[in-house]
Design a protein around this nucleic acid. Structure first.
Lengths: 366, 366
DNA sequence: CTGAAAGCGCTAACAC
DNA sequence: GTGTTAGCGCTTTCAG
């Protein structure tokens, strides 16, 4: 292992504190015996420079180890070539995939990504957005912590930065959005269960929500709201009374597995569950096992998101697959277009979900 | 949906291209009837300002909607409060978790994260590092695409930026590192298999490597190298000839599942597999199923990383759990310390792995 | 095609 | 405590 910090004294006032002064255009210009402006033109690849001079400058830059200061460039051009992305939690496979989708498009278009986790809380979301705006990102991609409280989003729009929402929409904000057809997906998924004869079906989501869900209430996340709508509608159509009583939100605070156990045991136990994402499905699977319920004989289970392992369990799980990668990618595409100055009307792209029927659904026991 | 782009004409030369001029300290200073310096002191929370003036300035800032320009601040202070992180692929749960661990520490310390995917290729890694350096990140966290070719890492050190490696180390580079005790982990995992009586055991990794593995060869990733070392040593100790013949690298290019099928079928088929990560374990699981092999009766399987689903399959999978979150977090801690000027000798932190025995190991068939 | 000069928004020296 | 001035590294007029 080496030694560190011996040369910590700084000779220049500014700089990165490691004692080395960065090579600048001026340095390169001097070495190449041209003006700063000319060197900058050659280095920045803009304006007009004669081939001979360009070559001379580039050689000098090479020798001196010149590396452009993107910040200084941003100061004068106003473009940072950076976009901010705010997700609920990068550890959540949904966000990890969407982020990758966005990163690929961004990268191709020459943009870097500043990543922030909101933990689905508007407060930390506000902080993240504040910092990203301060860093003058060219635009933002956000999966809003709330579809209802749009103040954070308004901050972005007011700051004049292009904004594209993904996974969730928000009413009343001037922004594009990319979401999945959650209501339709929920209907299909739930329909599988009612068709099989289930009448006591629970919907489980980790969405934070005060108190229990009551019909007509506005939910914080539009995607969950859509799923709930599709779910309750399907139940109602099947003649099941009080569908909203089967909607279980807030499952995170209480522990998803525990919430699941409550729902699938007792006299009025659900005989089937719709899990709002793959992590919830996992918890339900575990819960069923812990209370000795077999899937699908004793409990049917369907879920959103085709996580790679859902095809591996015994039984494998029937899921509604979302084009997660594409959600992120398309959001990034829209954003890049806006940054480049596209002034068309705002659009909300709705991507289809795809049902993958596997083995986790069976008729209820009598 | 609203309308966009009607007001695209820009009145100022610079700016973000949306026609709005950002509010600056000067504006605030004028409004508060103080000098720019005083306003800046009040806004930036440094230097000395009287309470009355501070309040006046802050009110003015509020009214004008002032938002500090972090870039300009970086220009003069040399600190960007941003750290770069380069991972193989954010979609890989390992990197997603490590990134979250790093993000939490960074956030607490007041740093933002610029995220890049290298796809484990030194070329795109170089590009990512180049951009991050240009953006003057205060330091970098990187899971190097190569532990051998250290040119990209040298670029960082030469640029005078603190660097902390995670998951993999690299010889000859002045940087801290945080890794897991992979060799020991591999020994334990493999030992489980030899103890059960297996003699044809395959190790599968997606690490890119030209041609087959030969003993003593240097591998691109130090963590895989360590695992291979632990694996072959254990085989050798069990008296198994030519252990290196059982090391299968490059499994990505050929398709992991396909590689697995090749290894577990045929006359010389392996009776047990050590999967170098949870995604490989998943492919092996699938492969076994596709060729009609039961786990653990026909094939034993152990893997690195305690992915959440590994306890759910039938049978559940015996794994070597890594403190992934902590790897990222500790790396970030070390980096922040360096950025703050810690000049101690470079350290390599080695975190323990933990064996979780489940149901996927049994004696081989006769 | 090249150069000189101004300026992006901020902080750091240095006066007062 | 407060103001003045200079300057970070770059791009952009504007001249020539």
């Amino acid at each position: 292992m080496g030694e560190h910090g011996s040369e910590h004294a700084s000779s220049n006032t500014h700089g990165n504190g490691n004692g080395r002064r960065e090579v600048t255009v001026s340095d390169v210009a001097a070495a190449a015996r041209v003006s700063k402006a000319t060197a900058a033109r050659a280095l920045g690849d803009y304006g007009a420079v004669s081939d001979s001079v360009r070559e001379r400058v580039q050689r000098a830059a090479e020798e001196l180890g010149y590396r452009a200061n993107a910040l200084a460039r941003t100061m004068t051009t106003g473009r940072s070539n950076t976009i901010g992305i705010v997700v609920g939690d990068i550890e959540n496979p949904f966000f990890a995939q969407a982020t990758r989708g966005a990163a690929d498009i961004a990268d191709t278009a020459g943009f870097d990504l500043i990543l922030s986790n909101s933990d689905e809380e508007t407060e930390s979301e506000a902080k993240a957005i504040g910092v990203q705006l301060a860093k003058r990102v060219d635009g933002l991609l956000v999966a809003p912590a709330s579809s209802v409280d749009i103040r954070n989003l308004r901050t972005i729009v007011d700051a004049g930065r292009p904004l594209v929402l993904f996974d969730r929409v928000a009413e009343g904000i001037e922004a594009d959005a990319v979401i999945a057809a959650n209501r339709t997906g929920a209907r299909k998924l739930t329909g599988l269960l009612t068709s099989a004869g289930h009448r006591r079906i629970a919907f489980i989501s980790t969405l934070l929500h005060t108190d229990g869900y009551r019909s007509g209430e506005v939910l914080g996340s539009s995607s969950v709201a859509e799923r709930v709508a599709g779910f309750t509608t399907t139940l109602a159509e099947a003649g099941i009374p009080r569908p909203e009583a089967w909607v279980r939100l807030n499952a995170r605070a209480d522990g998803v597995e525990r919430a699941a156990v409550e729902l699938i045991t007792g006299p009025d136990a659900a005989t089937a569950v719709v899990a709002s994402d793959s992590r919830i499905a996992l918890a339900v699977f575990r819960a069923a096992r812990s209370v000795g319920l077999r899937i699908p004989e004793d409990l049917s289970l369907v879920a959103f998101d085709d996580a790679d392992w859902t095809g591996l369990t015994t039984p494998s799980i029937t899921v509604m697959s979302q084009p997660i990668h594409e959600i992120g990618a398309e959001a990034a595409r829209l954003l890049v277009r806006r940054i480049r100055g596209d002034g068309g009307p705002f659009v909300t792209k709705v991507l289809d979900q795809r049902l993958i029927e596997r083995e986790s659904v069976a008729p209820p026991r009598l």
